[in-house]
């Protein structure tokens, strides 16, 4: 028999009530290492620049100084190392039976929800640095998007793989009528 039970809006499951899972603990270390590598290259670049262009003009009185360039890494130091410590704890994800929810952002706090029956495909990726720290990125693609519609950075490699399989199973089981 056809049934069409009324659903009260209050009885709908809410995203607020989910249990949020933080990103893998190693992800902060991975981000800090990335910052350190970035800073290292900036320092090497400035040192190299100074070694090549630090010239005293022919009359010996005038000197082109590039010492102020060291202000760049100095000013970048705090944000580069502080940002992962602030931003990573703001990221979290939750998986429900029919959708996946991801929150992120420090100044612009965004909570995105993707129902499994709208996911076109799932991609797991990892950079060499990710692999060193055994973390990975999961990208979920929906129709009409311009790239990975939802990128979840900083999952442990095992969790990312488990999630990928789980979502693929969910995609496969969703049946729609035309």
């Amino acid at each position: 028999m056809f049934e069409n039970a009324e659903i009260q809006p209050e009885s709908l499951p809410t995203v607020e009530s989910v249990e949020w899972h933080p990103m893998d603990a190693k992800f902060i270390r991975r981000k800090l290492t990335e910052s350190a590598i970035g800073l290292f290259f900036i320092v090497v670049g400035i040192a190299g620049f100074q070694a090549i262009f630090n010239v005293t003009l022919s009359d010996g009185n005038q000197h082109i100084s590039s010492g102020w360039l060291w202000l760049v890494p100095l000013s970048l130091c705090v944000p580069l190392f502080a940002w992962p410590l602030i931003s990573v704890p703001k990221k979290a994800y939750a998986v429900r039976d029919r959708d996946i929810i991801y929150k992120s952002g420090v100044f612009w706090r965004t909570v995105t929800a993707i129902p499994f029956n709208r996911i076109q495909h799932v991609e797991k990726s990892s950079t060499p640095l990710d692999r060193r720290f055994r973390v990975a990125t999961l990208q979920l693609f929906t129709a009409g998007g311009t790239g990975g519609d939802l990128k979840i950075h900083g999952l442990s490699a095992k969790t990312a793989e488990k999630l990928r399989f789980f979502i693929l199973e969910k995609i496969g089981s969703s049946v729609e009528q035309s």
């Binding site: 952002g105 100044f107 965004t110 129709a143 009409g144 998007g145 519609d149």
Partner: peptide
Amino acid sequence: KVQRISITQTLLQERKNLATVRFFMASG
């Protein structure tokens, strides 16, 4: 027909209990 949905709050919006909703459709 919505593909995904997001709610964003800036710090100012959060203070005033406001938010911006984005509906991601397959057409935009």
